[in-house]
Design a protein around this nucleic acid. Sequence first.
DNA 1: TTTTATATGCAACTTTGATGCGTTATAATG
DNA 2: CATTATAACGCATCAAAGTTGCATATAAAA
Lengths: 137, 137
Amino acid sequence: MENSTEQVLKKHGLKNTRQRNVVLEEFFKSNNALSQPELEKRLKGEMDRVTLYRILSSFEESGILHSILDRQGTMNYASCNASCSAAHHHDEHLHFNCDNCHKIFCLDVKIPAVNLPAGFQVAQLSLTATGLCDTCS
Amino acid sequence: MENSTEQVLKKHGLKNTRQRNVVLEEFFKSNNALSQPELEKRLKGEMDRVTLYRILSSFEESGILHSILDRQGTMNYASCNASCSAAHHHDEHLHFNCDNCHKIFCLDVKIPAVNLPAGFQVAQLSLTATGLCDTCS
DNA sequence: TTTTATATGCAACTTTGATGCGTTATAATG
DNA sequence: CATTATAACGCATCAAAGTTGCATATAAAA
Ligand SMILES: [Mn+2]
Ligand SMILES: [Mn+2]
Ligand SMILES: [Zn+2]
Ligand SMILES: [Zn+2]
């Protein structure tokens, strides 16, 4: 009987280590994005700082997580939806950064198309909102 | 006879120091945003690293520059338009981050309005595009 | 020209992140 | 189940970005 974090690791072809399961559990428990500093605080004693960095990178590369830069330049991570893979991320949605609780939410809001001046070729768009989240407002 | 950087400093009520004029000249010479590391490289020997940080902060606070976070989390700065002040920045336009030359351009493209889920109150929107700029494409 | 507030330089420190390397543990294979 | 190759981990070390405290220098006002 495998738990769900182990299933996710297997599905993405990653070795089933204690540290990876611990990190993944944090995301399963949270409904918003988690910053690297926050994760480091929560997992102090559980694993080395460097291991956390490497796990986050490998999770992003394999399509388990996607990264979000907040207003202060801090790296945050959130679960990807099921269709994400190493080959392609499908995370072009709005990210909401609450000014009060500082949480970051992935909202199911599509990024509108924009008209750019001639010569500019868009590869990717990112849209971030600041303000008050639904619980803080 | 004052040069234009001195006029800008006076207009914003900032002391006219050699270091501030040197920093401001870099922005007058550039048609794209400048990153902190790039500025530090260019102004090595001209002033202390800490002074540069403090000048950039004061310029942002007084509405001379606005800050832009690029994809790698590096802080960049660009000239504000004439109507910006300490009280309010008017820099809600699209920022284009070229994948090739890595320059950041402030484009005169308004950020479209978006519909958020109930409870979320937007204070500010930021829209960033990556791709190829007009000279690289 | 003096005075005073502000800006600067320098030292020290923190945080975030990267890299090299020896050791440990996973998972495949026999 | 035992062996073994390889990937992951822990630890040490380093670098870049940014902050803070304090003494000194310098604009700008008096
Ligand atoms: Mn997201
Ligand atoms: Mn801009
Ligand atoms: Zn909130
Ligand atoms: Zn370019």
